[in-house]
Amino acid sequence: MGSFQGHLVPGTLFLVIGVWHTWSSVVRYVSNPKAFKIRVWSPVVGFGGRLKYMELYVVVVGSFIDLCIELLYSPHFRYFVNGVLNPSHMNDFAHSGMLLMFFIFGVVALLNEKTSDAYVRRYLPLPEGALILIIATAFLAEYLLFSNHSTSYKGLESYYHILLLLIISISIISILTATLFPTSFPLDLTCGISITLQGIWFYQIAFSLHGPMMPHGCNLKDNEIICKLPENEVRGELLANFQLFAAVLLVFVAVLGSYGFAASRYGSSELMSMHAATDGFEED
């Protein structure tokens, strides 16, 4: 079932990483469209290089903290009951596996950039495609986790997680396709947008199923969402559709605004020439 905080923490991580990935993708493209290449993570330029690896630090530290919450705090070290894994915390253990994959990606990416050990350097740096496959595996683990949620949960809660699966699947497809088209700006942008939407949707689940936005006629009872009438459940699902549409619209408007701002501030002559050629083609 999860909790309000349990959805808020990963939602914040996905939102921060998604917004940064989207913004950096836009800036890199408008700065030099012809040399654009997809990056699995984006360094922070400026600040004397002190914040260069900030994205990876957020991934490593954030996933580690959330991993500790799921694996240490939630079960209170009661991992076994009567000789078997504690059945009351199987959900926490499953979440830990997903978070471990993101933690591994962050650590490998940092080692890929920063290690100076001669033995490690025999195997590093990894090509960008290898890092893309690692992060794709992490998203696949996330998909498998929440696909189980969508079948084990009932009614409204299952529906919210089905919509989450749709967003995660877009992340997986865009990331894997990027290995085939490493210079595609739309693919890189799609990846950033889908990760941002994941963060927003985790927030939406927290507020809709564990907070003040619970649909009318539905309540949280015995760790399960119970709707008084079938009509209330249908209304809740329609409301979820509208919430997802609003989130997508919000993100796309923000991306368009970001592109316009970035183009005016960081746009290269090549970008202006491309826009001019496009305008000329439309006039013809």
Rank of each mutant, 00 (worst) to 15 (best):
F202A: 14
E224T: 09
Q198M: 15
S208L: 07
L250V: 02
S264N: 11
H161F: 15
M214R: 02
G280Y: 03
I225Q: 08
A276Y: 00
R265P: 11
S171M: 15
I175Q: 01
S258N: 10
I173V: 09
N241S: 09
G236R: 04
T190N: 11
R265N: 14
L229C: 15
A262M: 08
G211N: 07
L187M: 08
L180N: 02
A262K: 15
H161C: 03
G211V: 12
S169N: 02
F207R: 01
A246Q: 02
T196D: 05
A262R: 09
I226V: 15
V253E: 00
K221N: 08
S174L: 04
F242Q: 08
H161P: 05
L238D: 01
M214T: 03
V234S: 07
P186W: 00
V253M: 11
V251G: 09
V255L: 06
K221T: 12
N219C: 05
L271G: 06
I175A: 06
P186D: 00
D188A: 15
I167F: 04
H216C: 00
S171W: 03
T190F: 08
Q243M: 15
T177F: 11
T179A: 03
S273A: 08
I205G: 10
L165N: 15
I226A: 13
S269K: 01
Y160I: 05
L244H: 03
K221Q: 10
L271W: 00
A254N: 13
L164C: 02
V253C: 11
L197A: 11
L166G: 13
I193W: 01
T183R: 13
I175E: 00
Q198D: 14
F181S: 02
C227G: 10
P215C: 02
G267R: 14
F181G: 00
S174W: 01
T177G: 09
G280M: 05
G260M: 10
R265F: 12
S208W: 06
P215E: 05
I172R: 01
L256P: 02
Q204V: 07
T196A: 12
L209T: 05
G257K: 08
I170F: 08
G236S: 01
L239A: 13
E224D: 05
H161W: 07
A263K: 06
L220M: 15
Q204N: 01
S258P: 07
I193N: 13
D222Q: 13
A276Q: 01
I193T: 15
T278R: 03
C227Y: 06
I162D: 09
S268D: 05
I162C: 07
L220G: 11
E233M: 05
F281A: 14
D222S: 11
S264V: 05
Q204P: 00
S269A: 04
L189H: 09
A254H: 03
A206P: 03
M214D: 02
E270G: 02
A276D: 03
T183G: 08
I225M: 14
P182A: 13
F281W: 13
S268G: 04
L220C: 14
F207H: 08
L176Y: 03
R265A: 12
N223Y: 03
